[in-house]
Design a protein around this nucleic acid. Structure first.
Lengths: 201, 201
DNA sequence: CAAATTTAATGAACACTGTTAATATCCCCA
DNA sequence: TGGGGATATTAACAGTGTTCATTAAATTTG
């Protein structure tokens, strides 16, 4: 049918813009995101973008999902063989941090960019806030089941972990604190270790 | 002399623009900061601003210092009579959070706005990063002197505190997490308490 | 005090930003 | 091959930060 072809064509077009947006975010970062910039990289006029997305925020919202799955595979790749329990939770959290350090623009998209106004973006916020918990979910279940921690403690430690990682990344990416990468690695490592050492092993 | 008069006149002019900028930041927030907006509120043309500040970032930099002293008095007012030790550290940290919750625009200025490029703004970053530590400095000294904690632990807990507070504020202000203010207060209270309960009392 | 010179305030302009509406182009089907 | 509907595009608007030439004011000098 015609409608089917339209559909795949439309999805293709969306894909071009999304891919362009993702490229810019991973490369130059959030500050270089602009409708003209995205459209040029996608090979279309800036106005064409508005035939497929109601505004640039909606376009950017699609990137969140993509980056999350990308980050998830990044994390799984380097934590798959880690021994289970607190060790694995540490490894997951560190890999999670690694990803955003590699792509500061994605951190900015996730935690700084204001997507709060419109309806669909409440979904984005929820997706972002729950992301680290989702990455860790299976392992937390393992820890609770094996009595390495209690459900109540787990809830509190999860919150600690989200706050600490968010703070660490914001301070390092936007305020260059600590001064250099090696110091950041040392500091973030210590902090994560300390938070997760509350769990038995 | 002539140069003196020029000096106080120049300082007065700078003051007008700084005051206007501070008003906007405290009111509408960082998103409403614009050269035209500031200048209009100060009662001058936008071009006049550039006779006193090399760019809007420099102008905004002056606000950081002012807000820090304002925040410092806010903190001191409501922690002056608190019993010393970990209790006072908790109170200081909570008052610190209070201030930024009251003025989200100031949090954005401190931790999100990129003032990183130029020379003078490295100073601003240093000022911001060390701010909470400076608010707590006297009390940490007290705790160490009275063997409530060690110097080594203090360093780590300070870092924890900075990361946690920064994360808490960013997530609540930019991602509405937790959903409402009462839940935020409960959550942030728990987190701060837990971090500072490592200190004896 | 008047004239000359320095100083400070400004409006126009430029290069950007996001977004909308009208226009031009393409493609499919009769 | 022509007509019509979908789609890509140009033009325009209102906003952003910043620079520069011009104007107006104040200050110094004769």
């Amino acid at each position: 049918m015609i409608t089917e072809r339209k559909e795949i064509q439309e999805q293709r077009m969306k894909g071009y813009f999304i891919e362009a947006t993702k490229d810019i975010l991973k490369g130059e970062g959030l500050k270089n995101i602009s409708v003209r910039n995205i459209a040029e990289r996608a090979g279309y006029s800036f106005a064409t973008l508005y035939n497929y997305f109601k505004d640039v925020k909606e376009l950017v919202f699609y990137c969140v999902k993509d980056f999350q799955t990308e980050c998830e595979t990044h994390v799984k790749e380097r934590t798959d063989k880690t021994t289970r329990g607190s060790k694995k939770l540490k490894a997951i959290t560190k890999a999670y941090l690694e990803y955003f350090i590699q792509y500061p623009g994605i951190f900015e998209l996730f935690f700084i960019e204001k997507l709060s106004d419109i309806g669909g973006n409440q979904e984005a916020s929820a997706l972002i806030i729950s992301f680290l918990d989702r990455l860790c979910e299976e392992e937390w279940n393992y820890c609770i089941k094996n009595k390495l921690t209690t459900e109540k403690d787990a809830v509190r430690i999860k919150t600690s972990l989200l706050n600490a990682t968010t703070g660490l990344l914001l301070l390092y990416i936007h305020r260059r604190h600590p001064k250099d990468y090696t110091e950041y690695i040392k500091l973030s490592g210590n902090q994560i270790e300390h938070i997760l050492n509350e769990i038995g092993s």
